[in-house]
Structure formats: C-alpha cells, structure tokens
Design a protein around this nucleic acid. Structure first.
Lengths: 158, 158
DNA sequence: GGTCAGGTACTCGGATAGAGTATGTCCGAGTGAGTAGGG
DNA sequence: CCCTACTCACTCGGACATACTCTATCCGAGTACCTGACC
C-alpha cells in the first residue's frame, strides 16, 4: 500500500481539532515528511472531496465534513485509488482449453473469492471513522493531545 | 496486487485434477501466458511448500497437499509475500510534537485499524480452499471440465 | 533375457535486462491579507 | 475616519525527474528416462 496513505490519515486526524486552514508545509513539518510529496497527497484528498483547499495568505487545508462522516476507507481510496487490487484478466477464456464466452455469464470463482476478500477489507475500513481514530488517540496519548497539536499548528514557531 | 497471483491460483486449480507432474511450460501454454515468468511464480509456490517440483524428463509441478488443505491465502502469500500491505512508520514519534516512546506501548490507532482490515481480508482468503474453487469451476463450466483440462495437460499435442 | 553404464533430452533454479508505478521535486497560477493613498 | 485600489507574500496546483518493484527473459545445474552393450 502507498506510504502516503499513512501520512494522509494522520493529517486528517490532526485536522479534526483545528478550525483554521493548515498549510501543507506545516503538516509536513509536524510529521517530518517531505513537504512537496505530502502536498501531493493532500491534493488527492481535495480531489476526493474530503478536504477543502483554500488559497491565499492564510490558506491551507480543512476537513470538508464532520470527522464522524469521514471513514478510513474514504482516505485510503482517495490516495490509493478506488479500483480493487485484484483484477480478473479472464484467463479462463484464453488458451486451447478456453471456456467459451457464452458460459462466462458470472465472474469466475477466483474473481469472486478475491472480490469477497476485498469487500471484507473495505467493510473493515469503512467501520472506522476519523472521529473514532481521534478519540482513540486522545485515550491513548492523554486527553488534550490533539488540542496541543492544534495549538502548535496555529502558532508560528517551531 | 501482483498479476502472478491470478496465474498461480489458476495453476493450483487445474493441478487438482492431475496426478503426474505438469511442466511449467505446459501450464503457460494452457493459460497463454509468459512461460518463463509463470515458472518464476511456480518457483515461489514451491518455496512456500504448496507444490513439489520434480526434475527430469517427465518432471514438473504437483500439489504437495490435498486441495482442501490449501487456502487462497496460502497462494496469495506465497506470491505477494506474507508481510502486510500497511506498515506503520511510527509517525507519532517524530516531529516537534512527537509522542514520547514510553507512551507508545500499544500500536497507534491507525495501525490497529489497518491491521484489522488486513486481518479481515486474510480471514476471507483463508476461508476459501483450492478444492472449493475447483468445485465451483465444475459447477459453473460443467462437470468434467477439469478432467478435460487434465487430459489435455497429459497429452502432447496442442 | 536381465542388468548396468552411458548419453540425452527435458526439467527446474537462480542470475540477468526492461517497463511501469510510486516517490520526490520544482516552478508557475491564483488569491486573500495587509497597506498606502485618497476622499 | 472610512473607503478603495494596489502590492505582496503566501498558498495551492499541475508538470517534471528519480528510485524501486513488477514483469519478462536467458542460460546453467540437475535428474529421470531411454538406449545400447555386456553378462
């Protein structure tokens, strides 16, 4: 899986506690990652409609929806793309013992099994929201952690 | 996901109906895929212990276990590798607002959610066996399909 | 006829090139804020 | 004192290089089968 997914999810979680837009460069500084590449991931989030991008002097990125309405699946698909990992190339219709196309009314069993596993993964990802993740972060690292991060993001120093 | 996974699964399914070893080149001809690259995938299956490779004039590959004891997960992991797609790089421990390492006794919530989705996918893949797939192929394409393929694999002509 | 040695052809196995995608970087377009001037 | 127009600095956005993995290929190592000779 793309490493940018992890960055994007972390960004969404910290964005839950801020109201003003946060520039990509500041998020990169917070996470110590490549600013330009993180910007690319945030652009993908913007294209997917998960965040709003505002330009200008005090611009940046803001969540476009309440965190409870953004699922982990939304973020993963925004970065990695919505197409499933497994694509059936219809091997059964090729070669000397090919199954005639008229018999292939349903997806082949292998494709179905792969689709089922993909679906299970997507269901698991869909059941987790950004708000839920933020809640767990607070529970794990202490209440007020995200507010502290938000304060740092809003300030100008290091 | 690696395209070789699809090839490998198809090979495992057709191997359920043969007793004698089948050369990689013949499986490639059956599926109309690159012989040398398919050979590489079969080598991976052999390394994982899913198939036995026998050398010599009438050599080839045979399933090492009853098809009911080989799961789709086994094949996928043999080709794509057993390591999970998502790897947590512990972003929370980096940057100016880093969480101290002593607070990181449990995996971060994001990592946990990703692991859960991976686990769901693996469970789905584990619940499908090669024998089950072969059964569904017979049900879909007509009884005797696999035996016909087996006969073709055993013969010498095209 | 049976046994054994040798050759041969066929197999797998790992080491070796090429293509596509993920990663990382750069510069230009756009815009909101701040400022200076005028009314 | 308020309004307006301008400048400017800061932001995003897409176009451009680089590294790595997936795909595809080649040739060498090994082995079972077949053939032939010998007993």
């Amino acid at each position: 899986m793309s490493e940018g997914v992890e960055w994007a999810v972390h960004c969404c979680v910290v964005l839950t506690s801020v109201a003003a837009p946060v520039p990509a460069a500041r998020l990169a500084e917070l996470h110590q990652v490549s600013p330009t590449y993180l910007a690319k991931q945030l652009q993908a989030l913007a294209r997917a409609g998960l965040v709003f991008s505002v330009q200008g002097k005090s611009g940046g990125y803001v969540l476009s929806r309440p965190p409870a309405e953004i699922t982990l699946l939304d973020v993963v698909e925004a970065i990695d793309g919505p197409e499933p990992a497994f694509v059936c190339t219809e091997i059964r219709q090729r070669g000397p013992m090919a199954t005639p196309a008229e018999y292939c009314t349903t997806p082949c069993p292998i494709s179905r099994a792969m689709a089922a596993s993909e679906s299970a993964r997507r269901d698991a990802l869909r059941s987790v929201t950004i708000a839920g993740l933020a809640e767990q972060v607070e529970a794990g690292s202490g209440a007020g952690t995200l507010n502290g991060v938000a304060a740092w993001l809003g300030s100008t120093g290091t």
